[in-house]
Lab assay of single mutants.
Amino acid sequence: RGFLEKAAVKKMAKAIMADPNKADEVYKKWADKGYTLTQMSNFLKSKTAGKYDRVYNGYVIHLD
């Protein structure tokens, strides 16, 4: 289950990176699912340092 969630989160993160207008909708879905910042950090780990920082930081702001 965790692997599928991670894959889904990364897919949506890539969608945000391609079209930032989708961010609020995606952040709301993640918040509704109760994803914590720790979970998001783990889901968005990448071999490329900083690749998903913008998405993660946007989610931090959304939760605030």
Rank of each mutant, 00 (worst) to 15 (best):
S41P: 01
N57K: 11
P20G: 07
Y35H: 03
S41T: 10
K29E: 13
V9F: 03
K33R: 11
A31E: 08
A15H: 07
N21E: 11
N21D: 10
A23V: 03
K29Y: 13
H62D: 01
E25T: 08
K51T: 07
Y35L: 07
R54H: 12
M12S: 06
A7H: 12
F3R: 14
A15K: 08
K22H: 06
I16A: 06
D19H: 06
S46C: 12
E25K: 08
K45V: 08
Y35Q: 00
A15P: 01
A23R: 05
K33T: 10
I61H: 13
D19Q: 06
I16V: 11
T36G: 06
D32M: 12
K22E: 06
K29W: 10
G58S: 03
A18I: 10
N42V: 11
L37F: 04
H62M: 05
K11Q: 11
K22P: 01
T36A: 03
A13S: 03
G2T: 12
K11A: 12
A49L: 11
E25R: 08
G58L: 03
N42A: 13
G58P: 02
V60N: 04
A23N: 02
K10F: 06
K45C: 15
M40H: 00
A23S: 08
L4M: 11
K14T: 07
H62K: 04
K28T: 09
S46Y: 08
F3E: 12
A7G: 07
N42Y: 14
S41M: 10
K47I: 06
T38L: 12
W30T: 00
A49P: 15
R54C: 15
V9M: 03
Y56A: 01
G2R: 13
G50V: 04
D32E: 14
F43T: 03
H62V: 04
L37P: 09
H62C: 04
R1T: 14
M17E: 04
K45W: 09
V9D: 01
G34Q: 05
G34A: 05
M40T: 02
Y59K: 01
N21L: 11
Y56R: 02
F43H: 03
K10E: 07
L63D: 02
R1C: 15
A31M: 09
K14E: 13
A13L: 04
Y35W: 05
H62L: 04
S46K: 05
K14H: 09
K10C: 11
K28G: 08
G50K: 06
M17N: 05
G34P: 08
G58H: 03
A23F: 02
K29V: 14
L44I: 03
S41A: 15
K51D: 05
E25I: 07
V55S: 01
Y56H: 03
K28Q: 12
K51Q: 09
T38A: 14
D53S: 07
Y52H: 02
Y35F: 06
P20W: 15
I61L: 13
M40F: 01
A7N: 10
V9W: 02
N42R: 13
Y27D: 00
M12T: 04
A23P: 01
A7L: 15
N57Y: 14
G2F: 15
P20Y: 08
H62E: 02
K45T: 12
K47L: 05
T38N: 10
Y35K: 00
G34C: 08
Y59N: 01
K14L: 11
E25C: 15
L37H: 04
M12N: 06
L37C: 07
A23W: 02
T38Y: 10
D53V: 05
N42T: 09
Q39N: 05
Y59V: 01
A13V: 04
K47W: 06
A49R: 11
L4V: 11
Y52P: 01
K29A: 14
D24K: 11
D19I: 03
W30V: 00
T36M: 03
A31L: 06
M17P: 00
V60R: 12
F3H: 13
F3D: 14
K45D: 08
F3S: 13
K29F: 13
T48D: 10
G34M: 04
L44M: 02
N21V: 08
K11G: 06
I61E: 13
T38M: 12
K22Q: 09
N57Q: 14
S41K: 15
Y56I: 13
R1V: 15
T38Q: 14
Y52F: 09
A49S: 11
D64F: 12
D53A: 08
D53R: 07
E5L: 09
K10H: 06
F43V: 04
M12D: 15
K47S: 11
G50I: 04
A31V: 07
M17F: 05
V55A: 06
Y56M: 09
K33N: 09
Y27N: 01
Y35R: 00
A18W: 05
L4K: 14
K6W: 10
A49I: 11
V26E: 03
L37R: 07
K51W: 08
Y59P: 01
K47T: 13
K11H: 08
A15R: 09
G34E: 04
T48N: 10
Y35A: 02
N57M: 12
D24N: 11
G58E: 05
D19V: 04
T48P: 15
N42D: 13
N42C: 15
A18Q: 11
Y35G: 01
L37K: 10
H62S: 05
K45I: 08
A15W: 07
T36E: 03
K10S: 04
D24E: 11
Q39A: 08
V60E: 09
S46F: 06
A13M: 03
M12E: 14
D32W: 07
Y56T: 03
